[in-house]
């Protein structure tokens, strides 16, 4: 029996599968976060950088939800909701700053 993250899933059938799925999802989302960071670094224009930052916010939400699954709690729900709101507001603020030269006119 694999004890990857000490998942609170009992010992029944499918527990190993779920543990491996959580581990694979963590790895995949972390790799995606790194790839989005590459796009933030090399992106030729500001639109690409804003888009990559938006993707990184969405990936961060996925990471936090995965952390909540792996620990068996739902206390990370508010954190991910607030990060979703802040991500949208920051995307719109960055885009407006480039479009108009000012955020609130």
């Amino acid at each position: 029996m694999i004890d990857l993250f000490n998942l609170p899933v009992g010992d029944g059938p499918g527990a190993t599968f779920l543990a491996w799925s959580v581990a694979i999802s963590f790895a995949v989302v972390v790799i995606s976060q790194i790839l989005a960071m590459v796009r933030v670094a090399v992106g030729p224009g500001s639109g690409d950088r804003i888009l990559a930052l938006d993707t990184m916010v969405v990936n961060a939400i996925a990471l936090i939800v995965l952390l909540g699954i792996s620990q068996g709690t739902s206390i990370y729900f508010e954190a991910s909701l607030i990060i979703a709101m802040l991500g949208f507001v920051s995307t719109v603020a960055l885009a407006r700053f480039i479009l108009r030269g000012d955020i609130i006119e």
Binding site: G45, S46, G47, I50, L51, D54, F88, V92, A95, I98
Partner: peptide, 14 residues
Amino acid sequence: SANFIAKVNIHERE
């Protein structure tokens, strides 16, 4: 946000 980023792309003539 996709609409805003598309407008940024048009604005920067990318």
